[in-house]
Amino acid sequence: MTETQPRIVPDFGDDTDTDRKLVLICSKGNLDMAYPGLVLANAALGEGIAVDMFFTFWGFDMITKDRQQRLRFSPVGNTAMHLPVGGRMPQWLSPFPGMTWVATKMMKKQIDDLGVPPVDEFLDQIVASGGRLWACKMSADMQGLTMEDLRDDVEGIITAADFMDLSEGAQTLFI
């Protein structure tokens, strides 16, 4: 049954000024835990929502020049891990030499097959879409890293107090 209506125009929210803002705290350096923040940041930007990403602790690896292409996925401790042939991965098997290499290779392929970019390219896209990247001061100090070591588009190494200003009025997610 079709009904005729005079005109239906999607509401893209251009007339309503939104100040919706998303802040993502990225604290993990595992390949699998890098993606939730990246996917959400990209989706939010595509919906006209302002995004700041704050990288702390192991999340630093996502923005460190010589590490961001080398994130790994380890099956160790992941009791939900499936095997490609079906069934769960036996826990005794996961710490064996080479398992992380295999698991990482497989996950990277799955990500690539979906047309989803690697971490560094994904951050390129996020910045090109208007996303802003920030690094945590304490993590930088602990790891002996400076702005030199980070992606050129990281805007600054900021303190926890600075983060409070940054996240004012934002929806904040800790990943």
Partner: peptide, 27 residues
């Protein structure tokens, strides 16, 4: 998606945001 429009179509995401402001994918 905006990603594919860049990766396959060759139109940079930044440019997509200029051409179709705020919500390029949907617009």
């Amino acid at each position: 998606t905006t990603r594919r429009v860049q990766a396959v179509g060759g139109f940079p995401v930044k440019q997509q945001f200029v051409l179709f402001p705020k919500k390029p994918g949907k617009k």
